[in-house]
């Protein structure tokens, strides 16, 4: 039977939800499901991987893998792929996933389908839906001439059901001969925000030029805090230097697909709409009833955001008992 390998990412001693999605999807494929985890202490996550569908768990638990280094991870993953010879490799389209897997695919004379939003595995063959032009259209991706099918899935796209609490497994640990490194990670400067990245967030509150100045993003931060949301922004305000580029949603920023997207004082330029129209429910708050954002919105409020947003924050507090 052929094997499917899931690259499992973790944070704070837990498997990330995006990786749970992949493990469960892999299990449903009917192929032999293997998982691989990197970093100190990951052997403690073996049972959790098994409970979500992994039949075999591989680890690289050396502290050398606590921080991503492309050369180290490439060497480790190359060894593992040689050993277990999977026909499919699944990963999230995270910073790490997008950096590592295209190169690994090239090494194995294979292709990679990136940033996919739907996944079908039938008789060992992958068909994945993938946005093009940041979501202005979609295509079905499949593989040919590709010994391994590498698929990078966006977070929050696949269903998650309850784990099987009785499953257990013990991890098989691997080590590598450390390659002569040409890239050295000197330092990691942590971002100010402890919140989920826009690409993983379930709720996003996004602001545009209607906020008038950088300081007024505080209104959105307050609203986001109540909702446990991540704050995003339009290109106009990023280009104006109000907020950092990491917060930009759109075709030249991040493509997002949260359950709830609240667009505040943001008209909805075509490149912005491309980046967020995959959101399940969209709320638009704008003083211009003609703003294009209303065409994509589920609920619309025409009004003064400086009046509406603080009231909204209070109302959410009340309803969510915060």
């Amino acid at each position: 039977m052929s094997t499917i390998l899931v690259f499992v990412e973790h944070q704070k001693n837990q498997i990330k939800r995006s990786s749970v999605e992949l493990l469960q999807a892999a299990q449903k494929s009917g192929l032999k499901t293997c998982a691989v985890l990197f970093g100190t202490g990951v052997e403690n996550l073996a049972n959790s991987a098994a409970q979500n569908g992994a039949q075999e768990v591989h680890t690289f638990k050396s502290a050398d893998f606590d921080q991503y280094n492309p050369e180290m991870f490439l060497a480790a993953m190359s060894d593992l792929l040689e050993k277990i010879k999977p026909s499919i490799v699944l990963s999230s389209a995270s910073s790490l996933g997008k950096d590592l897997f295209p190169r690994l695919a090239a090494r194995f004379q294979s292709g990679v389908a990136s940033d996919c939003t739907e996944l079908k595995i039938e008789n060992g063959k992958v068909t994945a839906k993938k946005p093009l032009y940041s979501g202005k259209c979609f295509a079905e991706t499949s593989f040919e001439n590709s010994p391994i099918q590498f698929v990078l899935m966006r977070a929050n796209q696949l269903p998650v059901s309850a784990a099987n609490p009785s499953a257990t497994t013990s991890a098989i640990d691997h080590t590598i001969n450390k390659p002569d490194l040409k890239t050295i990670i000197q330092n990691v400067v942590k971002g100010a925000s402890e919140k989920l990245d826009l690409t993983e967030a379930n709720v996003i509150v996004s602001g545009g030029r209607g906020l008038k100045e950088a300081g007024n993003f505080k209104l959105l931060n307050d609203l986001a805090d109540v909702l446990g949301a991540t704050v995003g922004a339009s290109r106009a305000v990023v280009d104006a230097g109000w907020v950092s580029h990491g917060m930009q949603v759109g075709q030249t920023g991040k493509t997002v697909a949260p359950t709830l997207y609240i667009a505040v004082g943001l008209s909805g330029a075509i490149q912005h709409l491309a980046g967020m129209s995959g959101s399940k429910v969209i709320v638009a708050i704008n003083n211009d009833p003609q703003a294009p954002i209303f065409q994509k919105a589920t609920y619309g409020i025409v009004g003064d955001l400086f009046e509406v947003v603080p009231k909204l924050t209070e109302e959410f507090k009340k309803v969510l008992n915060k």
């Binding site: 093009l132 202005k136 259209c137 979609f138 295509a139 079905e140 638009a284 589920t298 409020i301």
Partner: peptide, 19 residues
């Protein structure tokens, strides 16, 4: 190695509910 088929446009959204 990778082929793209069956292009589609995003599904139409239900009309916005203005409050």
């Amino acid at each position: 190695k990778v082929v793209l088929n069956s292009y589609t446009l995003p599904a139409d959204k239900a009309p916005v509910k203005m409050l």
